[in-house]
Nucleic acid binder design. Structure first.
Lengths: 189, 189
DNA sequence: TATCCATGAGACATATATGTCTCATTTGAG
DNA sequence: CTCAAATGAGACATATATGTCTCATGGATA
């Protein structure tokens, strides 16, 4: 059914991720070069810069959801799910990252997906609160922001070879759960 | 001594901060418009886009250092200094933020200043470790990354009116010190 | 082998950003 | 008031990015 060979498309997407992550203003010619592909081919696949960006956002979201689903599996504990998802997202943080710059979020469908993902995170955090993992007095959204921020921090450390992925994930999880957990609050009404 | 009136320059810098924060690729014409200034005037003051970016970076760094110095004052406790600095930086986070995008960091002088600031933060964290605020087993750089990340998270919450500046600062400090503190580790060797 | 189709190279028109320059006007200081 | 400096408007040349189009090539398939 594919009327166009997939390899060029994939190469362009990969090159776009790598190049735009470092310089969001890079030209399409640069992307095409990096992908080892003619500039015309890039336009055949994506039509416009905007279409390419939308495809990148879609691809990144799919990758993220696949990784999270695979990591969480059929874990019953929401707390465990959040911990595993955190570790799984760290290696993907860079791609998610450059997409968070809003020029991409102009697209309504993409923004809607982003909002839905954030809502899902908040729901999971509420469940973990019920499991006693987080202090109910801390706003759920602050926990979510911290969750995302620590993933980014962990990715930076791993990128710079300051920590292994496992070490970074453990530190991030420790920071999150001790910082926002219920430990030491048992005495409070 | 000023051969050029300062008001235009300041208006341009302010407009550039606001506009570039939202869209780093904005044109200089857009900046000039936003500043209520002719495009030629912008070039008279800054010569080139690159020069403008360097001026923005310099200005932002000065603002940050001034705010931190004012907040820290003659506080003797390094822990307290870090807490006060955190609260002081939150309102400035957006400006620091867009400067972290690397096109600006190409400038060697600016990058050097950035590295020096990070080193100063790490030194302060080491001192706070000595004061018992942070777990000595946690890498200092992880604490620094967490510090920066939580400032950004706090700024986002304040920007969206989800929290007041004070609430956000308290939550960030709690997350940092409980998450990476020595509480509950007393029993360990 | 013959055919189809994605591709690469590159021409082309268009749009936009950048930086320079000129000139008339305004503003502020003396 | 007078003059010098800063400014705004806009022309101008240049560079670069974008998107479209054409045509020849090469590989895969029937």
């Amino acid at each position: 059914m594919d009327t166009i060979r997939p390899t060029s498309r994939d190469a362009i997407l990969e090159a776009a991720f790598q190049t735009f992550s470092k310089r969001p203003g890079a030209s399409l010619a640069e992307i095409a070069d990096h992908a080892g592909v003619g500039r015309a081919t890039l336009h055949r696949h994506f039509g416009s810069r905007e279409a390419l960006m939308a495809a990148l956002a879609q691809t990144a979201r799919d990758e993220l959801n696949d990784a999270v689903d695979a990591a969480v599996g059929n874990t019953v504990s929401h707390t465990d799910g959040l911990r595993r998802a955190l570790a799984a997202i760290i290696p993907l943080a860079e791609r998610q990252w450059f997409l968070a710059q809003e020029p991409v979020l102009q697209n309504p469908a993409i923004e809607a997906a982003y909002v839905a993902d954030q809502a899902a995170l908040c729901t999971a955090i509420e469940e973990a609160k019920a499991e006693g993992t987080f202090d109910p007095n801390v706003p759920t959204r602050w926990i979510a922001e911290t969750y995302d921020s620590l993933i980014f921090a962990a990715w930076e450390m791993v990128r710079d070879d300051a920590l292994t992925a496992d070490q970074a994930a453990d530190l991030a999880w420790r920071t999150l759960t001790r910082g926002l957990g219920t430990e030491g609050l048992a005495g409070k009404t």
